[in-house]
Design a protein around this nucleic acid. Structure first.
Lengths: 207, 207
DNA sequence: GTCTATACTTGGATAGAC
DNA sequence: GTCTATCCAAGTATAGAC
């Protein structure tokens, strides 16, 4: 199947590719135009400025990422049946969102640009750190209520111990090892996260 | 005590300050000159190019950070006397290196610039990730040999579980919460790391 | 919608007077 | 060692012909 992309879509995709490689400031309108195969002035027929391209990219990413969260009610039903169920479902959902090439590239772009783009920084802080940590925190609370883990342990600390480790793996892949194979990374992320959750669980499980 | 800084030192310090705030590309020679209180052409009497300023900053940081590593022999002596001893000594040393304002600022600069500066990326990968992880790995091996932790646990995994968590806290401080109070951060880093090491130890301690 | 041509700005760097 | 003056390159963006 051959998909014809509109010029606007080509600009969008090429910008994602270049921004994620060289950063926003590291890419010129001229470069994007060249990549697309048009002159730079033609870009302005589709986007009103360089910044508006970035905005469109971010909007796309945010929309993709903030859909269909996992309802906690579902966890409650399944937790005592099988802890792995909930854990795997969450990981799968997250990874399914991430695994398209564009989403992977934008993830790197977000990590690169967060230091001087307030909007990106806020998204990173809220949606990629605080919200997931709170989700894990609630899950540990639930486990506590179900007497799966000790009563006196700190859910917030457990959530951070788990999630920060995973976040580091993402950081490492996109900022240190980039551009290593994405597929292999996602596989490793799954395995390593599983080990980490086991380590933590082993430390606090009810006897 | 009043310390008179040479123009070269002023350029050095102002560059660290500006680069760490806005990134290398985000700062112009003109800005640095203005901050110092001279004209931009005068900069070139002290540094041959903008890039050579960055190089000087990195060299300074790398020299400060790669001195006096903790010898493992010292750990071996003290480990069964008091595990906390070794842990605290390591953390103290690390934090004492980091706590000058310039060192803190350069840390942020390194995190910001790693994605498109190969030299910085290599330093980050080797000296700020691999070397410390290997150090912790050896420590866990030692603990295993001393039967403090279970024989069948994976030292590398434990080292990563511990260190990646700490690295995230650093990343968070410098890239998300910046510029929050550095002193308070270092205190929090110490406490949280201690909790993390306890959590891990609790999971694998010999019975 | 794309092109050519061009305006305008900013940034790195150098020459030469003092 | 600092200044003024200037050069050159590169970047964003616009006007107007086709």
């Amino acid at each position: 199947m051959i998909i014809m992309l509109s010029t606007k879509e080509k600009i969008f995709n090429s910008s994602i590719d270049l921004f994620s490689k060289y950063g926003y400031d590291g890419v010129s309108i001229r470069q994007i135009a060249e990549e697309v195969g048009i002159k730079e002035s033609s870009i302005y027929n589709h986007y009103k400025s360089k910044e508006s391209i970035l905005d469109a990219i971010l909007e796309f990413y945010i929309n993709e990422m903030t859909n269909d969260e996992i309802p906690l009610s579902k966890a409650e039903e399944n937790l005592d049946v099988d802890f792995d169920y909930f854990y795997n479902a969450g990981l799968e959902l997250y990874m399914s969102k991430l695994k398209s090439p564009n989403m992977m590239k934008i993830t790197r772009l977000i990590l690169i640009e967060s230091y001087h783009n307030e909007k990106i920084c806020r998204f990173l802080k809220n949606e990629m750190i605080e919200t997931p940590v709170n989700g894990w925190c609630q899950l540990f609370e639930l486990m506590k209520a179900k007497k799966l883990i000790k009563e006196d342990c700190d859910s917030k600390q457990l959530a951070e111990s788990f999630y920060y480790y995973g976040f580091f793996l993402i950081y490492q892949h996109f900022m240190i090892d980039y551009p290593e194979d994405d597929e292999e990374f996602l596989k490793k992320l799954g395995e390593k996260s599983k080990n980490q959750i086991r380590l933590i669980y082993n430390s606090v499980k009810a006897v």
